[in-house]
């Protein structure tokens, strides 16, 4: 992917530490995200990827350091936390749609109740966005009537309808059947081409390589690599990253083995 000329810093993570009791999950971690940048976070499970996203959205308090969005600190108990959260859209691994609301009501709940937008206007935008992900005919359906991939696409639309400045994706395809992964990743790829700022946690390495401006390799609560995908996937700088990537290589070798016989 061509190197983008980096705009100003949107999100600034400075020396944050996150501990659960004695267990340190994030340790003195710093990261800047610029406007329009797509950052993919990879790493072994338990390395703190999801925790990092949850801290950015103030779903988890941090024990040290600070997270600034547009220069404003994000804190769970901060006064303007709901305003800051509106600027950061998040899509979770498990389907997190509200089961008692229709697809359309899922999408317009926050625009109407939080942003106090008019019903007609919010619904019109919701329908436009649904059409773009191929789900306009599902507007009146309930989440239980949708497939996993469709639910995730609705969840993305629900986040987009709040006009966030930045999107966080937390392993959004990890719970999906393989044939549904593609439809969700395609939606995210489309968002990248629109110049959206995104922080994506994923185990889909092909996808990471295709979409990332920068790949962050997280292990043991620290950023070990912070490089463009071309470098990360061909010539990782650390042994840990090489080991990590090898696991995927190994899986690929096994997969192709019978064909070579």
């Amino acid at each position: 992917m061509a190197v983008k000329i980096l705009a100003e810093t949107l999100l600034s993570i400075r020396h944050i530490a996150k501990r659960f009791g004695d267990n340190t999950v994030l340790d003195d971690l710093s990261l800047d995200v610029h406007k329009g940048e797509v950052i993919v976070v990879v790493g072994p499970s338990g390395c703190g990827k999801s925790t990092l996203l949850r801290c950015i959205n103030a779903l988890e308090p941090i024990q040290a350091g600070e997270i600034l969005l547009d220069g404003e600190p994000i804190k769970p108990d901060g006064k303007n936390i709901t305003e800051l959260r509106q600027k950061v859209g998040m899509v979770f691994q498990s389907y997190d749609l509200f089961p008692h609301l229709s697809v359309l009501d899922n999408i317009v709940l926050a625009p109407r109740k939080v942003q106090k937008r008019a019903k007609a206007e919010a619904e019109a935008e919701a329908l436009t966005l649904l059409e773009r992900v191929g789900l306009k005919d599902k507007a009146a359906s309930y989440p239980r009537e949708l497939s996993g991939g469709q639910k995730q696409r609705v969840a993305i639309v629900r986040a987009l309808c709040m006009h966030p400045e930045m999107l966080l994706f937390d392993e959004v395809t990890a719970a999906l059947d393989p044939e549904m992964v593609r439809e969700v990743l395609d939606v995210i790829l489309k968002l990248a081409t629109q110049g959206r700022t995104m922080l994506i946690v994923t185990h889909e390495m092909q996808f990471a390589r295709a979409i990332a401006d920068r790949v962050i390799f997280l292990d043991g609560g620290n950023i070990l690599e912070n490089t463009p995908p071309e470098i990360f996937f061909t010539n990782p700088q650390t042994e840990r990253a090489r080991q990590f990537l090898n696991m995927f290589e190994f899986a690929a070798v096994k997969h192709h083995a019978p064909a070579e016989d």
């Binding site: 779903l59 959260r85 998040m90 979770f92 709940l109 109740k113 629900r158």
Partner: peptide, 24 residues
Amino acid sequence: IQTESALSLGLSRAQTMRYVILPQ
């Protein structure tokens, strides 16, 4: 996760309770 996704959309604690948790 229902509470978290509601909060992440910018709903306040009270709104989360009223529109998301209590009806369910």
